[in-house]
């Protein structure tokens, strides 16, 4: 079979754009679900590392060290093939990415909570607020603002790392690209993967820009930016 002209390789990509877009949808959904799970677990974990004590604090710290010290690829393979936590590849990928992200988000929040000076917490206690109330009303709002840059970074990392779900066969963007290449024109590899890269880039770029907007919106007048 003679090699097809370059033009038809691009035509092939365009013809299959609907599949790539569907894969992009899965990638976005997986990113959002993982970041959300990471936030729901990571925020309290960061707070426990700062304000907690005893066995709970040690358990949270240990879980974080283990998760940050294990390659994501290993976590996802372990959860899917080893522990079979779910028959759904999407659910498994969300758990793997979400847990790993929680371990990193906890460090973002921990640093942000610690960066709010003690004096403000003391001033809140001095007007008669309880410890929990003071942390919630005074420290947390400032810490969340200061988390935005770290959060932005984490969002980008999770978005790109969703591609690891290819190893458990989840139909996200990279998997779709791979299937197109293997199932169709092998000569279109460059075009397919360039397109896939471009889509990842556009996603991260747009996300970063939107989070910059968030940064501006929540900055404190006259003070530091979030």
């Amino acid at each position: 079979m003679p090699p097809l002209p370059l033009q038809s390789d691009w035509a092939f990509v365009v013809e299959n754009l609907d599949l790539l877009i569907a894969g992009t949808g899965v990638t976005v959904a997986l990113t959002v679900a993982s970041i959300l799970l990471g936030f729901l677990l990571g925020f309290p974990a960061g707070a426990i590392e700062v304000y907690g004590r005893g066995p709970l604090k040690r358990a949270v710290e240990t879980a974080g060290v283990v998760l940050r010290g294990t390659p994501l690829l290993v976590i996802i393979i372990l959860l899917f093939f080893g522990l079979s936590v779910s028959s759904s590849a999407f659910v498994t990928a969300t758990i793997a990415l979400g847990l790993r992200s929680a371990a990193y988000q906890s460090q973002i929040f921990r640093g942000a909570l610690q960066s709010v000076d003690e004096g403000q917490l003391e001033a809140a206690r001095a007007v008669g607020m309880g410890r929990f109330q003071a942390i919630r009303s005074v420290v947390v709002p400032q810490a969340l603002r200061r988390s935005v840059p770290g959060f932005q970074n984490e969002f980008t990392i999770v978005l790109k790392d969703t591609s690891i779900a290819i190893v458990i066969g989840l139909g996200e963007l990279l998997t779709v690209g791979q299937n197109l290449y293997q199932g169709g024109q092998s000569t279109a590899a460059l075009e397919i993967f360039l397109t896939v890269s471009l889509i990842y880039f556009v996603l991260t770029f747009v996300t970063n820009r939107s989070l910059d907007r968030l940064d501006d919106r929540f900055s404190i007048p006259g003070g530091e930016r979030a």
Binding site: D117, G119, Q120, E122, A123, A124, A126, G128, P141, Q142
Partner: peptide, 15 residues
Amino acid sequence: KQVGMVFQDFNLFAH
């Protein structure tokens, strides 16, 4: 609640 305090470094709530 019955004893107010004013600090050297103000300790205002920055947000």
